[in-house]
Structure formats: C-alpha cells, structure tokens
C-alpha cells in the first residue's frame, strides 16, 4: 500500500479552491439561463447569463474566469441543460449561437484582464475605478456581439445587417441593464474575490 500512496499527486489547496469556485460559477451560469427578467421596453426576454460572464471575469480573473465559462460550455456540449431555454448538446455550440458562446468565454477573459491586469493576482473589483469597470464591460459586450453576429450571419447565410437586426438590436436594452447591474454588484463590495 505504501508505494501506491506515495504515487498520489494531490492537487494543491489553492488550485482546488479556485477550481471549486470556477465549477460552481459555471453551474450558476447554467442556472442563470432559466432566469429571465422581463423588460417593459424590450420585446425579448432577457436571461442573466451575460451578467454571470462579467462576474466570472471580475471575481475569478482572466484565467479561472475563462476556465469557468469553458466548463460551462463543455458541460452543455455533453448534455447538461445549461444553454438558453434549457438546451444542451454540441449542436448548440456550433449552431447559430456558437459565436455568442465563444464570446462569453473570451469576454470573461477580457474583463478579467482589463480589471485585474494580471493573470493570477486579483484586486478587489470594488476598488476598480468606474471608467475602467464600464470600459471593460462594454469592451466584453462588443466582443460578444461581434463574434456572435459574424458567426450567426455565416451559419445562417444571411446579410450582416439582417443578422444585426435579429441577433443584436433586440438585446441591447437588456445588455445595458446587465452592465449597470454588474457595476452595482461590484461597487457594493460584499463578495470577496479569491
């Protein structure tokens, strides 16, 4: 038995802690797809998934925030009902929403990089200046929109203008609301970053 035990390579405590938070945030991302907040001025229901993308970058940083969204995508691809409206499957990843989903991953990494300016040393989002916060979130949203709409137009074989009309414009009010909400959360400073 002794030789067997010696060969066990434990994952170190810090990594386990970050990994567990990344996995739970990925599950929260899945739960958020079931929450839609109706907006009086918008025709489409708005889920809170992009909000969780922002929180991933803010509270886990670029590396583990990105890993968290990566876990969410992988779990959805192999059948966890975590994509919008409880969908699952590889097909959702490569279908018309594929660009958005890739955008979620890169968006979390981008927010993490812009806010923390380091791969692993995280600062408290509550102490980030408002312009940096707003700039990071808007940049991530633009990235998500750009990837989303280009892939949508390609896969659906529609004109870019039509894609923007279908896949961006209806969501703008809700996405602005989520940026404001994220800033409100960050500034309250009640969640400890790792």
């Amino acid at each position: 038995m002794a030789t067997e035990r010696n060969s066990v390579e434990l994952v170190d405590a810090d990594t386990v802690g970050l990994f567990a938070r990344a996995a739970l945030l990925a599950a929260l991302m899945g739960a958020a797809s079931y929450v839609s907040i109706p907006l009086p001025f918008s025709p489409v229901p708005v889920t809170l998934q992009v909000l969780v993308v922002y929180l991933a970058g803010l509270y886990l940083g670029p590396l583990w925030g990105g890993a968290s969204i990566g876990l969410f995508l992988a779990a959805g691809a192999v059948g966890a009902p975590v994509f919008a409206e409880g969908k699952a499957g590889v097909g959702v990843l490569v279908g018309y929403t594929g660009g958005y989903l890739l955008g979620y991953l890169l968006g979390a990494v981008l927010v993490g990089l812009l806010v923390h300016r380091s791969l692993d040393r995280l600062r408290d989002p509550a102490e980030t200046s408002l312009p940096v916060l707003v700039g990071s979130l808007v940049a991530a949203l633009v990235l998500i929109y750009a990837l989303g709409v280009v892939w949508f137009a390609h896969v659906q074989q529609v004109e870019l203008a039509a894609a923007i009309g279908v896949a961006i414009v209806p969501f703008i009010p809700g996405d602005i609301l989520k940026i404001v909400t994220t800033i409100a959360i960050a500034k309250r400073g009640v969640i400890d970053p790792v």
Binding site: G17, A20, R21, A23, L24, L25, A27, L28, A31, A32, V35, I37, L48, L51, L55, Y59, L177, K178, T181, T182, A184, I185, R188, V190, I191, D192
Partner: peptide, 17 residues
C-alpha cells in the same frame, strides 16, 4: 437583478468553499 446576482454568487462561492 443585482440582489439576485449578489446573493446567487455569494451562495455559490460559499458552497464552493
């Protein structure tokens, strides 16, 4: 939404810890 976000994330992190 921000209440939901704060409470949802802090509970998720508490479970993660």
């Amino acid at each position: 939404a921000s209440r939901l976000g704060v409470l949802g994330l802090s509970r998720a992190f508490a479970r993660a810890d």
